[in-house]
């Protein structure tokens, strides 16, 4: 199971980093979401992988798992959720204002290298 969790975290991180390096805001937001999934799993595994054990003191139970990483993950999930919402709103505002969703500050004359051709909204500028 360690291998599976580690591979999942690694794959999510790699995908997230790749998407963040794209030049358009939509893939960047997706990449940040993937990264936050990766880090949530990572925090969870910081308390060691212990399936089937209870985190909260219960009568008749002697074998516990660490509850703190679960609380930390909850905090991290809530924060990344809120941040993603803010980011999406800012990205929509920037997209509507600029007519395209490139993340750079300069306006290139044509489609950026390695990017798909301009979409309909851009043709309408």
């Amino acid at each position: 199971m360690e291998l599976l969790v580690a591979a999942a975290i690694g794959t999510l991180t790699a995908g997230g980093v790749y998407l963040i390096l794209r030049l358009r805001s939509f893939p960047v937001i997706l990449g940040l979401s993937l990264l936050s999934y990766a880090v949530n799993l990572f925090i969870f595994s910081a308390g060691r992988l212990a399936p089937g054990k209870t985190p909260i003191i219960t009568k008749g139970v002697t074998d516990y798992t660490d509850p703190l990483p679960q609380a930390l993950v909850l905090t991290a999930i809530v924060i990344s959720f809120g941040m993603t919402a803010v980011l999406v709103l800012i990205a929509i505002g920037a997209h509507l204002g600029a007519g395209h969703d490139r993340t750079g500050m300069e306006d290139p004359p044509g489609p950026a290298a390695g990017e798909p051709a301009a979409d309909g909204q851009e043709a309408g500028r």
């Binding site: 805001s25 990264l35 990766a38 910081a46 920037a94 993340t103």
Partner: peptide, 23 residues
């Protein structure tokens, strides 16, 4: 807004890294 988008993205990556370090 476009400058703000860059600012937010950079800081979100920073926050993710912060969480990795803390964990």
């Amino acid at each position: 807004l476009r400058a703000g988008l860059q600012y937010v993205v950079v800081n979100l990556v920073g926050s993710t890294l912060f969480l990795f370090a803390l964990a």
